[in-house]
Simulated assay, not measured.
Amino acid sequence: MKVLYFAWLRERLNKGEEEVSPPAQVATVGDLIGWLAAEDEAAELAFAKRHLIRAAVDGKLATHETPVAGAEVVAFFPPMTGG
């Protein structure tokens, strides 16, 4: 699956996207965040406040409980403000 990073996540990770092959036990967006954080020290720091991270799975906004099985693209971004 392709993982996209936006805003300060992109800056902290020094990359905008990557291809990953998570293990079968990575079932949800939250599991994916945990797995990415465990695999990379920069990701661990970037995802330190996991409750703030928003996600989209295949272009649809998702919660941390959203399944990722079969997903082609998962995007992570910080909270957005409008005005």
Rank of each mutant, 00 (worst) to 15 (best):
M1D: 02
D31K: 10
K15T: 11
E41M: 04
K49N: 14
A69H: 11
L13D: 00
E72S: 14
Q25F: 12
K60R: 15
I53Y: 07
V29G: 09
A43N: 02
G82E: 10
R12M: 08
P23A: 11
E17C: 04
A42P: 01
H51G: 06
E72T: 12
E18A: 07
K15M: 13
A7I: 04
F47G: 00
V68N: 05
R10F: 11
G59D: 07
W8Q: 12
Q25C: 05
F77I: 03
F77S: 02
E72W: 00
E17L: 07
V74K: 06
A75F: 07
E65A: 15
V3Q: 03
D31Y: 12
V68A: 08
L9S: 02
L9C: 05
L13A: 01
E11P: 05
L9K: 02
V57W: 02
V74P: 03
A55F: 07
M80C: 02
A48Y: 03
G34K: 08
K49Q: 15
F47D: 00
I33R: 10
D40V: 00
K49D: 14
H64T: 01
A27C: 06
L52A: 10
P79H: 08
E17M: 10
P79R: 09
M1Y: 06
D40C: 03
E18M: 09
L13G: 01
R54Q: 15
L61N: 06
Q25P: 00
E18N: 05
A27E: 14
K2V: 03
W8Y: 13
H51D: 14
A55T: 04
N14A: 15
L13V: 02
A48M: 00
E44N: 14
F77N: 03
L36R: 14
G70S: 08
G82V: 09
V57E: 04
F76N: 02
A27M: 09
V68I: 15
A7W: 04
Q25A: 14
